[in-house]
């Protein structure tokens, strides 16, 4: 009898202990996850997700795998503008007033022949037209028809030095209200030389409108929308982007988003 009662008490203790463990785990889970989100080691641990994804994608995906292209029937009635719609930058606005006739794209950094390209010169180069889907990191998609110059045309003119690893797009749109912290983005050479990576100057058969990035925006069709910088002023080839702005390779990357946005 005594033995049995003791066994029952032990069992009750164990149950009480387990209840406490589970209740505690639940509370810790809810409250703790928010604290964890703010701690640096969790952020750096979890941010390995994009490293694993990029590694796997490169492993299983052919270098030149093409993004899906659509038909005119799939076009979104209006191509949504996201992020900046009018750059708060007087110099840019001057250029826009004159239909970007005085604008020139500067290509420099680790290249053999740094030079500038006017819009007219870019339009005179071979072009590619593609109807593709733009996937925003927020979850929405829009389908648009883009015409532009493949980036590889530009790169073959300027000549990429062997130590170059990334292209950095420096943009005209400031991300702060006081006109500082311009948008920028970066991609690797594999994406830069991809046939669908174009400097687009037309959207849906019309000159690229200002809300969508006039005079040119880059299309990187196998990644999310934030990689596709608008209002590009300068392309810089670098071996590392650590010295640029927040050092993570892009405006949104500096805010914690993945540099590799293929997922």
């Amino acid at each position: 009898m005594l033995k049995r009662r003791q066994a029952v008490t032990n069992q009750e203790d164990r149950r009480r202990f387990l209840i406490r463990v589970f209740a505690g785990a639940g509370t810790l889970f809810l409250a703790g996850c928010d604290q964890l989100s703010k701690s640096e080691w969790v952020q750096s641990l979890l941010s390995n997700d994009s490293r694993i994804s990029r590694f796997t994608h490169r492993l299983i995906g052919p270098r030149k795998a093409m993004a899906q292209e659509f038909s005119e029937a799939d076009l979104s009635p209006e191509f949504r503008s996201n992020g900046t719609s009018t750059p708060n930058n007087p110099a840019y606005q001057e250029l826009a007033k004159n239909d970007f006739k005085d604008w020139a794209l500067e290509v420099g950094g680790l290249v053999e022949k740094p030079q500038k390209f006017t819009l007219e010169q870019i339009r005179a180069l071979p072009s590619r037209t593609q109807i593709t889907r733009h996937d925003c990191v927020e979850g929405w998609s829009a389908i648009g028809k883009w015409k532009g110059t493949p980036l590889l045309e530009i790169l073959s003119i300027v000549g990429v030095k062997s130590n170059a690893k990334f292209l950095v797009f420096h943009c005209a749109d400031p991300m702060e209200d006081d006109g500082t912290n311009n948008y920028y983005e970066s991609i690797d050479l594999e994406d830069a030389f991809h046939p669908q990576t174009i400097l687009a100057y037309e959207l849906n058969d019309k000159t690229l409108p200002v809300p969508n990035g006039a005079p040119i925006r880059v299309r990187v069709e196998r990644q999310l929308g934030y990689k596709m910088a608008k209002y590009i002023m300068r392309i810089e080839l670098v071996d590392s982007f650590e010295h640029i702005a927040g050092g993570k390779g892009g405006y949104w990357e500096d805010q914690g988003y993945e540099w590799y946005a293929g997922i």
Partner: peptide, 23 residues
């Protein structure tokens, strides 16, 4: 917010949680 991780709007961190744990 009691249903989401992190609680506040924080898309970048939510994606890290989601894609890391997806792996």
């Amino acid at each position: 917010s009691w249903m989401t991780l992190p609680g506040p709007k924080w898309l970048a961190m939510a994606r890290h949680w989601h894609l890391f744990f997806a792996w």
